[in-house]
Design a protein around this nucleic acid. Structure first.
Lengths: 189, 189
DNA sequence: AAGAAAAATTAAGCTGGTTTAAGAAAATCA
DNA sequence: TGATTTTCTTAAACCAGCTTAATTTTTCTT
């Protein structure tokens, strides 16, 4: 059951009773999506936060030349949205789209506020999640600035072999900030 | 007073009484630093979280060639540390150092845990801070991947003119991911 | 105020990674 | 299953940004 993925994840950070957890889950909408479905559209108001119970999402934008560029992936138990736009209820700078058949729990901004109001312990859960995510983003910037494109690929494959398997190569290329052609050349070695 | 910078900042997110705020402040150590003092050393256990009351800090690492590379700045009311290492009490991947004469409030990891335990509303404060910081980091990655080095500089100067004034050019260059020589060339235009 | 050290500039040559274009392979669909 | 679309590969020409190294300017120290 998809709801259980979320409740177990929450429980690994904060302790809630069974009743509380089932009430928390009611704040979310559970839905399955086919491959390549858009869950969030750039330019539209960013009103939804997503939790991946199964499958894989990407956060991406369209560059000047019309090519999609992936900024972030989210697999099982990861949260995803344009967090800056979400917090201030502004238009999104990104698209969110499935990379494969996925099951996602969604919560609207107003429900998110209600949830945090009603269950203040959820603040602790999200604080931990965002603290880690921000720390990881700083590490990612460190890698971007210290590794060559070739090293980026090998170091990423070492750390997240499952991503390299699951994600199309041109999406991985854009996430790593290189061209599909160059990635192909690197892999040849 | 430096403590007041912190309490006012906290109060802009969560409401606390005067007594609570003065108790919260007691979890922190206030200290002034000269220019170029190290507050956190790479490889050493990351046990401290910093709040800038006055001045400016940088988070940086040393690359293969021995050159320091700035990953993040922090000016007044910003929080800084190696968040990933801090949360898991691991060795730091970064140095933290003053870029100018600064006044900083520091909190150790155990005090941070105590603080959150004793004042659960602080979870909300930090949740908001980290949610925004993570969102901003994703935007930063968007910029890194979509702008040329020249565009990076002009767009950064447009958004944060005060940084460009305050920070040495070679530090700014490393933050933007280009060489000081090339930044110099760009500025000539 | 002078001397030393640190930071910024300039210019030439070079390279990691892009662009373009065309073909091969793999996945999707009727 | 074959047809169509999507993804991946290969190779050559090209360029944004780096490296190197020498000079100038600014900042720091006494």
């Amino acid at each position: 059951m998809s709801e259980q993925i979320l409740t177990e994840h929450i429980n690994s950070y904060v302790n809630f009773s069974e009743e509380e957890l089932s009430e928390i889950v009611r704040f979310f909408e559970v839905r399955s999506y086919r491959k390549k479905e858009k869950l969030l559209h750039a330019e539209k108001r960013c009103d939804t936060l997503f939790f991946v119970a199964k499958g894989c999402l990407q956060l991406y934008f369209i560059d000047d030349l019309g090519n999609p560029k992936t900024t972030q992936f989210a697999m099982e138990t990861w949260w995803l949205t344009d967090f800056l736009a979400f917090q201030y209820q502004r238009p999104s700078n990104f698209y969110v789209e499935t990379l494969e058949k996925s099951t996602v729990l969604s919560i609207s901004f107003s429900k998110y506020e209600e949830l945090l109001e009603k269950f203040p312990k959820m603040e602790k859960y999200y604080r931990s999640i965002f603290e880690t995510a921000y720390g990881a983003a700083l590490m990612r910037i460190k890698y971007i600035y210290s590794l060559s494109k070739e090293e980026m690929f090998f170091s990423f494959r070492q750390s997240f072999p499952e991503f390299v398997q699951r994600v199309p190569q041109y999406v991985l290329a854009s996430f790593l900030g290189l061209t599909p052609e160059y990635l192909s050349e690197i892999k040849k070695k």
